[in-house]
Structures are given as C-alpha cells and as structure tokens.
C-alpha cells in the first residue's frame, strides 16, 4: 500500500494543478463551442448566403480527427493567423473547434424540434414574442438538446487528455512527467486513469439524472 500512496501523496501538488488545468480547459472549450455553435446555427437561419460556407465549416469540424485538429491549431495556425500565441489557447481553441461543429448541429435540431405552428398559435393567443420564446420554444428546445450537450461535454473532457501532447500541463501531462521523474509508471498512471474513469462515469450519471428530471418537469 505504501508503494501506492507514497508516489501519489508526495506528488499531490502537481497532480492537483494538472487537474485544475484539465477542468478549466474543458469548461472554456465547452462554453466557447456552445457560443460558436449557437452563432453558426443562427447565421444558417438568418443569413442564407453564408449557408454553403457554414455547412463546409461544420463538415470540416466533424470529419477531421481531433488529434489532427489539435496539432494543426498548435503548430500551423500561428503561421497563418499569428494566433494562438500559447499552448493553453491552442488547446481550448482546438477542442472548441471540433465541438462547435457538433453543437451547431445540436442547435439546429433544437430549433427544428419546435413546430412553427406552435409559435403562431402562441401569437394568436396574444403572447408576446418573448413570452412565446420563454414559455413555448425554449423549454422544448432544452429538452431535445440537453442530452447532446452533456454528451459533448463528456467528449471534450475525454479529448482534453490529448492537450498534454502539445505540452499543456494538464493532469495527463503531470502524470507522464512524474512517471519519467520517478521511474515508477504503475502507481501514478493507474491512479490518474482511475480518476478519469470516475470523472467520466460521474458526468454520465449526472447527465442521465439531469435529462430524466428535465423530462419529468416538462411532462407535467
């Protein structure tokens, strides 16, 4: 047991720092991807001339491996755009790039899920546009989109482990670094693998209970 605890407790500082980076890179990437996804799906509805371009963007994001996108953003983008300037930015930009394509499709499905007749009916009943959005459209959209959103967040957390390859000091980076320092791969890497399994399982369980609760509330 001492063999297990020694390496991990003595190194809890760097591991905790790494965990913080993993969490922050995932959350930033998710928020940016959601915002970009919303803008893209709105632009697709309200700016028809942009449609082919946006569809191409979505297809590119969804059909390129995340690892290729990550290295592309980290090593090639600076030469094109002189941005991003540091690896942390490159990391969340790459993760958000991939997810924005998926989330744009999710928003699209969300908008499609509410029949237009319902909005017209709400207006005929004298509801203002905002009230119709708040009471009729938004709740139904939320119900359709919630599972896909949670799922995408889980995908981002999983893919965030890759950022260690471009030297972002996340949990996986620290685990590999400490393993190389101590020459003891078993405890640290196993511990970090278990942490990731627990994290993803809890997120899946949370996602399931949230969607179930949402469905129950909407069903009334």
């Amino acid at each position: 047991m001492e063999f297990w605890t020694r390496t991990i407790i003595d190194n809890s500082g760097p591991l905790l720092d790494g965990f913080r980076i993993t969490v922050s890179v995932s959350i930033i990437a998710f928020v940016v991807a959601a915002a970009a996804g919303l803008i893209i799906s709105l632009a697709r509805i309200y700016a028809p001339p942009l449609r082919p371009l946006l569809s191409a963007y979505i297809a590119f994001c969804r059909n390129t491996p995340i690892f290729v996108q990550l290295l592309w953003v980290a090593y090639a983008w600076y030469d094109i755009f002189t941005w991003p300037k540091d690896v942390f930015t490159a990391a969340w930009v790459a993760l958000a790039l991939q997810s924005s394509g998926y989330l744009a499709e999710t928003f699209h499905a969300g908008f499609d899920s509410v029949p237009h007749g319902q909005v017209e009916a709400a207006e005929a009943l004298g509801m203002s546009r905002f009230t119709a959005l708040r009471r009729i459209v938004a709740p139904q959209m939320l119900l359709t989109m919630a599972p896909a959103f949670m799922n995408q967040f889980i995908v981002i957390v999983k893919c965030s482990t890759l950022v260690s390859v471009i030297a972002v000091p996340d949990l996986m980076f620290q685990a590999i670094r400490l393993t190389n320092i101590w020459g003891e791969p078993v405890p640290i890497l196993t511990f970090v693998a278990i942490i990731f399994i627990i994290m993803i399982m809890s997120l899946s369980a949370l996602s399931k209970s949230l969607t179930d609760r949402l469905r129950l509330r909407m069903a009334r």
């Binding site: 685990a175 590999i176 078993v186 890497l189 970090v192 990731f196």
Partner: peptide, 23 residues
Amino acid sequence: IEIGRSIPEFVLLIWINNVLPFA
C-alpha cells in the same frame, strides 16, 4: 463495458504502453 466507455483512449493508450508490460 462501462469502464471501456468511460476511459479516454489516450489515457488507456499511455497506460497500456507504460504500465501493463511493466506490471
């Protein structure tokens, strides 16, 4: 099945490459 679906591929890849032969 649950563990297989929950572990990030990259983590398992590094784990199998570094830990499994050693263990």
